[in-house]
């Protein structure tokens, strides 16, 4: 039971890191990045091909295979994601409105998924990569390995959390909120809206890459089924449930959605329903949950604290639209 709990907490911690990155994009800046999971996948793959030895006769095909140590693999994963995020953002953010970015990133997510799962020389196509030795396992042994890895993930989560909080309170964070609240006004006050959005977007992508690297270092394997639109929905549900813009809320949301709803229900014995049905039921619940939050409490359980005026702004614009 404890082992299961540790396992769940590792997943919650890693996904919370990703969610905080997403929160910087959506919660702080109002950019709905539906390719967040794609960057998790890219980060994971890059970390793997950096850390794995050359393919040799493993039966897999992939690029690089440098066999470098774990910390470097993580850093490279973040850098690659930041660069790709910058390219995507530079193109997609050229036009205003979250709506546009949402559709473009959704499409990009699908394209990358298609290409990675079809083009074998890159990351071995649909079968994916495996066989990564967990980092430091030669030092600490595998007996209590998960406990150690949980510790590592929590420390990294704490660092990311503190970074995000400092960012939020900084002048840069306030500028991001200004952009989110009123794109045109921010522009009128001489802010380079595009650059501000791009920075937030890149930071979020780099953090997603970090999450991906941590994930593959734990699971030792990754294939394209691991990052589908379902994962994106889970991320959305967690952030909206906990509270967009509020990092504590994001942690809470991820704990509830991933920890309780997804993993918790996997304890339902199979004589009640098959694993397949269980998975379907979880997904259905997730969809309903997302809709219910958006409809009845779009600011989430823990509403953003810094400025209540956002809620007011939404209300007045809502009544104007009606």
């Amino acid at each position: 039971m404890i082992d299961f709990l540790v396992l769940v907490l590792i997943l919650v911690a890693i996904n919370s890191i990703v969610a905080i990155g997403f929160n910087i994009q959506w919660g702080y800046t109002g950019l709905l990045n539906l390719s967040s999971i794609t960057f998790v996948g890219i980060g994971g793959y890059v970390a793997m091909v950096i850390a794995l030895p050359p393919p040799g006769n493993s039966g897999m095909q992939y690029i690089l295979g440098l066999g470098w140590p774990f910390p470097i693999a993580v850093l490279v994963a973040m850098v690659v994601c930041a660069v790709l995020g910058a390219i995507l953002g530079a193109i997609a953010l050229n036009r205003v409105r979250a709506y546009y970015l949402a559709i473009v990133t959704f499409c990009v997510a699908e394209i990358v998924h298609q290409v990675v799962s079809t083009y074998i020389p890159l990351f071995d196509g649909n079968s994916g990569l495996y066989g990564l030795n967990p980092p430091f396992s030669n030092v600490v042994g595998l007996a209590n390995y998960n406990d150690l890895y949980l510790g590592l993930c929590v420390v990294i989560l704490a660092i990311v959390f503190l970074f995000a909080e400092r960012l939020r309170k900084s002048p840069f964070g306030r500028a991001l909120r200004a952009v989110r609240e009123d794109h045109d006004a921010a522009q009128a006050f001489g802010r380079d809206v595009w650059l501000l959005q791009l920075k937030a977007f890149v930071i979020g992508c780099a953090i997603a890459g970090l999450g991906g690297a941590l994930l593959v270092n734990f699971t030792g394997a990754l294939n394209p089924d691991g990052w589908t639109s379902g994962e994106t929905l889970l991320l959305l549900a967690a952030v909206f449930l906990g509270g967009s813009g509020n990092n504590w809320g994001v942690l809470l949301g991820m704990l509830l959605v991933l920890g309780v709803l997804q993993e918790g229900t996997s304890l339902i014995p199979t004589w009640i329903m098959s694993n397949e049905q269980q998975a379907a039921l979880q997904a259905m619940t997730l969809g309903v949950l997302l809709i219910v939050i958006l409809r009845f409490r779009p600011m989430g359980i823990l509403a953003e604290t810094a400025d209540r005026d956002r809620v007011e702004a939404t209300r007045s614009s809502a009544s104007r639209a009606a």
């Binding site: 709905l32 949402a102 379902g230 929905l233 549900a237 949950l289 809709i291 958006l294 779009p298």
Partner: peptide, 23 residues
């Protein structure tokens, strides 16, 4: 008068729900 982006996400939620209902 919910923002259109909420509607977009809501339809994504519906998509997930309906697909898994069949599953």
């Amino acid at each position: 008068g919910a923002p259109r982006i909420y509607l977009l996400i809501a339809t994504a939620g519906l998509s997930f729900f309906l697909q898994n209902l069949l599953a």
